[in-house]
């Protein structure tokens, strides 16, 4: 499984955005073409649960803001180094006027028999990564966004998504607001019947672990490569729900270096000391957007090789080669 593939056409998109898009059809065609390539690449590598690659998205929060009522988009702010993004500004009550992610999901799913994940950014993160000039308090803003994400998730399910992932990387940054994030997550997932995943990265989970692990999700997708020294001690001391699934990040997405198969197997073995094999999904730590396609492909190939070798070992030890997932939460 993987989260986001490198976005080959980002540059083109940024330029067209600033110069008042003259050829939206051309851009859209390029996005579709890139999505086809991402799906094909994942199938060739041997990934089991695919992503569509988010070729149509610039920034994970801004993309949703651009498609919702109540937002405008700011000028450029720097995120790090020489990288800038346009941060959303909330200027009115937030409403969804049309499905945002459904068409691209349907297109991606039509290209493959393997399941493609429906990918959403969580309400807390969209709120936290936006300027707010309208709502008096953050909870109201987050909860309005939660309704929007819930509508979107339900539409993705109707369109056939078996897996819905709601990313919430901003949640660990304000431990004092964990109750807002949790309430919003409950709203976002209301009435869903699919396999629900949340991906949270770049965070210190220590103050919120007890709360987070009770979020209504089937699977947590966490960065076990960059954050192993913090995550494993937490799992040892506070625990992890035995009935939930874990996606273990085994690829560092911020280095050019291609991890060897042995190195990745080592990381998987470490995970298997803490989780039962049938609980474990394997993926990169985070989206692969900052890598080149060549790097991403090489990293993913080694990851899949490592998984297959460990699978063989486990099957020899008598583990079943298939698992059944129960979806009630």
């Amino acid at each position: 499984m993987l989260v986001v593939f490198p976005n080959q056409i980002t540059l083109l998109k940024q330029e067209t955005n600033t110069q008042k898009v003259k050829f939206p059809t051309l851009l859209y065609e390029l996005e579709l073409k890139a999505t086809e390539e991402v799906i094909k690449m994942q199938e060739e590598i041997g990934v089991d649960i695919l992503v569509h690659g988010e070729m149509e998205r610039g920034d994970m929060a801004t993309y949703f803001a651009e498609n919702l009522e109540g937002f405008t988009i700011s000028g450029l702010v720097r995120s790090y180094g020489n990288r800038y993004y346009k941060k959303p500004i909330v200027i009115g009550k937030i409403k969804r006027t049309k499905p945002i992610t459904v068409d691209m999901f349907k297109f991606a799913q039509s290209l493959t028999k393997k399941p493609v994940k429906g990918m959403l950014t969580g309400p807390y993160t969209i709120a936290d990564w936006s300027f707010n000039e309208y709502y008096d308090n953050k909870r109201d803003l987050v909860l309005d966004l939660a309704e929007v994400i819930n509508q979107e998730a339900l539409d993705l399910e109707k369109a056939g998504a078996l897996f819905v992932q709601i990313d919430e990387p901003a949640v660990p940054t304000h431990p004092e607001e964990i109750h807002i994030a949790k309430e919003a997550f409950q709203v976002s997932t209301r009435g869903l019947r699919s396999f629900i995943i949340t991906h949270i990265c770049y965070g210190d989970f220590r103050p919120i672990w007890k709360e987070i692990i009770n979020f209504p999700v089937h699977q947590f997708d966490l960065e076990f490569t960059n954050n192993a020294d913090k995550l494993y001690p937490l799992i040892e001391s506070v625990g992890f729900p035995p009935d939930k699934y874990i996606a273990v990040g085994v690829i560092d997405v911020h280095t050019h270096r291609i991890e060897s198969v042995d190195e990745i197997k080592q990381r998987i073995r470490e995970a298997l000391k803490h989780f039962r094999p049938e609980q474990v999904f394997i993926d990169p730590d985070c989206g692969l957007k900052t890598r080149t396609w060549e790097e991403a492909k090489a990293k993913m190939e080694n990851m899949v090789k490592a998984v297959n070798e460990i699978r063989e070992e486990l099957i020899k030890q008598g583990y079943p080669s298939e698992i059944t997932i129960k979806l009630e939460l």
Binding site: A61, R78, S79, Y80, G81, K87, D128, W129, A170, T173, H174, Y202, G203, N226, D252, H254, T255
Partner: peptide
């Protein structure tokens, strides 16, 4: 580039590593 690496680059004994979130911001430092 950020509050840490600009200083660290000019001191001996320090290498510059990966990206980390700067407190609760959607801003990162090396």
């Amino acid at each position: 580039e950020d509050g840490q690496s600009y200083i660290a680059k000019k001191l001996d004994g320090i290498e510059i590593g990966g990206l980390f979130r700067y407190f609760d911001n959607n801003t990162y430092y090396r």
